[in-house]
Amino acid sequence: MRMSKVVRTAADILFPFVLIFGFYIVVHGHLTPGGGFQGGAVIATAIVLLIAAYGYDAIARRITKDALRNTEALGLIAFIATALVALALGAGFFYNWLAGTGLLFGMPVGFGPNPGDLNTGGTIPLMNLAVGIEVLGALSLIVLYMLSGTQEAA
């Protein structure tokens, strides 16, 4: 059940911009409003936009449910693994083991209002990415499951 050419062209033009906006929200989660959950929801909205324009059958062939299921599990595993590394280093669970070490995302940041640097935040950007991947998979998967379930009933 695909929509008219106008809707399809508009969805084609809008899709990359929504996608890039979602990734921006995820990656800049420790500097600007937003974070993993919000960015993942925005990316899932982009996938729902494609489904609304092209119909379920055309999209389900490209974006399979198996791939999304693996994406979701991978995000959750990455999130827990980031927290577990702190345990291996001798600190508490969820300890921010990257902050202030000078490694990736480890630059110290000054106190007070400052424009911010992407290379700060310790484990927060990593956890943002993991949660973003998980939420993107989960919310798209819910919509795809419901569509595949109601496909024959309708």
């Binding site: 959950f37 925005v42 909205t45 489904i51 609304a52 919310l139 919509v143």
Partner: peptide, 15 residues
Amino acid sequence: AIAEAGIGAGLTTAI
């Protein structure tokens, strides 16, 4: 606001 716009206005309506 971002979470509500993405989930409430986008995904919940679709679901």
